[in-house]
Every structure is written in structure tokens, then in C-alpha cells.
Computed example of a mutant assay.
Amino acid sequence: MTIKKSFETIAVNGVSGGDRRTGAISFPIYQSATFRHNGLNNSTGYDYSRAQNPTREETEKTLASLEGGNEAIGFSTGVAAITACINLFKAGDHVILSDDLYGGTYRLFSETYKEFGLEATFVDTTDTTSIVEAINENTKAMFIETPSNPMMKVTDIKAVAQIAKEHDLLLVVDNTFLTPYYQRPLELGADIVIHSGTKFLGGHHDLLAGFIVANDNNIIERLRRIHMSTGATLSPFDSWLVLRGIKTLHIRLDRAQENTLKVAKFLDNNPKIEKVYYVGLENFDGYELNKKQATGFGATLSFRVKDKSLIEKILNNVKVIRFAESLGGVETLITYPITQTHSEIPEEIKKRLGVDEYLLRLSVGIENVDDLINDLDNAIGK
């Protein structure tokens, strides 16, 4: 009899429940580049780790199960996963993207692959009319982040999926911020889900990883071919680190989200803060929609200060919170998007979005929340 397992149980045990050959509870790190054949045309199923490795396979299958997909593919970084998706297209193809998204994604589409003839249009994907108006005869896909980075804009995945279906387009959703614990885009109509596994999946700021999850066998086969051919594959050790991180994903996210809401409310009530961008605040524009399509709000927020001079003061004076790029780890990080994650976004887009010299982003960790609030309070000053 097959027992239906919950998210938490799959996360803790993985799809295999450990190593069936030895009984090891912690799935082994198969630190091998190549595998011996038992004879001519008699492979063990593993030939060369760029093609597949048992540790990476366990990680991929575990994430696929959590995300509700048929298969997942592990990459060396999140950007490598996005690059593999781009390689599904050819010169002359057109892709529509969220205008508020990770700066590295923007750079890939607007610079690197523009040189190869790929066309990209960045629109406000919270407005379905803008999406439809951007569709051309050569449009092949839509790429969205929700909540977006760093302004936390929420896009209606089901509505965009319907547009994609009507126009025979692929829908790619970057689910890094909420992870499959809080949001499952495939169940809402997405064709491909992307993760920067460096962030919440790994959860400890000690690895680089990226993942693609999909249901369509043709898409998966094409992506696996790209994956093996381009070589940006997830290493056995980093695969194991992601597996370890996933075991506590639900616990870390729940605690971090709890902290984030308290920090958001503190900032929202501070007279020196102009606005807080957090999906978990009931007065935030995307709050109701996010509740409709997700089970959580995540652990990332942005906030705008009233006085620009306060930026340097905060960044120089936080003690518990670390001034560093990235997000999704157990430690709380503060980032200055205009000079860090979004430095290469064109000025006109940054200005329209509000990514300016007054904006900071927080990735809230699992420390004692009073320590985090006191740290911010001291850094902001009276």
C-alpha cells in the first residue's frame, strides 16, 4: 500500500529515505567523476557525473516531489538554470519578462543573449493587459517572479498561465522567494519552475545551486540535453548540502516568516521609514492575491527611508544583521539593491519601480527577533 506523504516528511527523508544499499540515513555523497561499467553495454545507470550522479539524482527527485513536478534538474547556480531555459529558444524568438526581477536575469536577457538574437520585453506582469499588449508573432515564453525582487510585486500565476495557454507560450516562474513549501506554480499552470537553490533551499549561505522543475517530458528531455552539453551541473557535495538544507526548509521558513512580519511591522511604524514592501502586511497591494495562490509570505522585504543619509548610517551600524548580497539563509542579511543586486538594471526601469538610493532589502533569518529589531532600531537611531 502506498502511503501519501506530507511535504515535511518528504523534505526530511528525501524520496529514498536514505541509502537503501547501506542503510545510511544521510544519503551519501558520491564523490566520483566516473563510474565503472560491469561489461559491454552493461552500465550501472551511472556513467559520468556530468550526465548524472546518485547524490544529485536524489536531490533532483526530492525537489521534484516537493514542487509537484515530474522531474527536476540540478545546476551549478541559479543563473545556470536560467541560462538553460534561455537555450530552449533561438535567434529571433521573443520573451516577455517581469520588469521587477533579479538583476542577473535582466543581464542575461538584455545583454548576453541579446547578442545571439533573442528579443526581450520587460513589463509589469501584475497587469495582464500589459502582458497581452506585449505579445508578438515571435513571442515564445513569459518569465515571471512572484513575489518580485526587490519590490515584492505579486503576479497572478493562474491568470498569466491562461494567457500563455491561449497564445501557445511557455510560462516560466522563478519560485526562489517562496519555495515549494509556500507556493507551487506548476499546480497553478506554469510550465517551468526555476529556483536559485543557493537561497532558501540550501538555507545556510554555504553553497551555490540552481534547479529547474517541469512536467512536460519533451521540455525535460531538451533541458537535460542542454544541461549535460553545457556542463553547468550541480556537484555531488553541493547536492548533498541542498538535501541537508531541504530537511529543515519548513521549520526555517516558518520561523523566518514569523520574524519577518514582526520586523516589517516595526519598520512600518517607524517615523523615519517611508514605506515597507512586504507581502505579509495586510495593507500591501499584493496581500490578498498572494494569500489566494500561496500558503505563506516568505522572509524577504524591502523598505524605503525618508532621508537618504540614513542608508549609510544603517549599513555602517547594524551589528547582528550582516551587510551582504544574497538571501534565504539562517542569518539576516541587508542589501542595497541599487549598487548590488540591481546595479545593471537601466535607470529608467529602476526609477519607475522605485529601486533607488532610498531603498534597502532585508532577508530575515531565524535569529531572536528582538535582537533583529533592536539592531535596526539602534542603527536607524532616534
Rank of each mutant, 00 (worst) to 15 (best):
K5V: 08
S6R: 07
G17S: 10
G18L: 09
I29L: 08
H37Q: 13
T44A: 03
R56S: 08
T59L: 14
T62R: 01
A64R: 02
L66F: 14
E67N: 12
G68R: 03
S76E: 12
A80M: 08
I86T: 14
N87G: 12
N87W: 04
L88P: 10
A91P: 07
V95H: 04
I96Y: 04
L97P: 04
S98Q: 01
G104D: 15
E111S: 14
Y113T: 13
A120M: 09
T129K: 08
V132R: 06
K140M: 04
A141G: 08
F143Y: 15
E145D: 05
T146E: 03
T155Q: 00
I163A: 10
A164N: 06
L170P: 09
A190E: 05
H195P: 05
H205T: 08
D206W: 12
F211W: 13
V213N: 12
A214W: 00
S229N: 15
T233Q: 13
W240R: 10
V242H: 01
G245A: 12
A256M: 06
V263D: 11
A264H: 09
N269Y: 02
N270F: 07
K275D: 07
Y278K: 03
V279N: 11
A294G: 02
A294K: 03
G298S: 11
T300V: 14
L301T: 10
V305W: 04
K308C: 00
N316E: 14
K319A: 06
R322D: 13
G328L: 08
V330E: 15
I345R: 00
E348L: 04
G354T: 03
D356A: 08
Y358F: 14
L360S: 10
E367D: 13
N368Y: 05
N368S: 06
D370E: 14
L372N: 00
L376P: 12
N378L: 06
A379T: 08
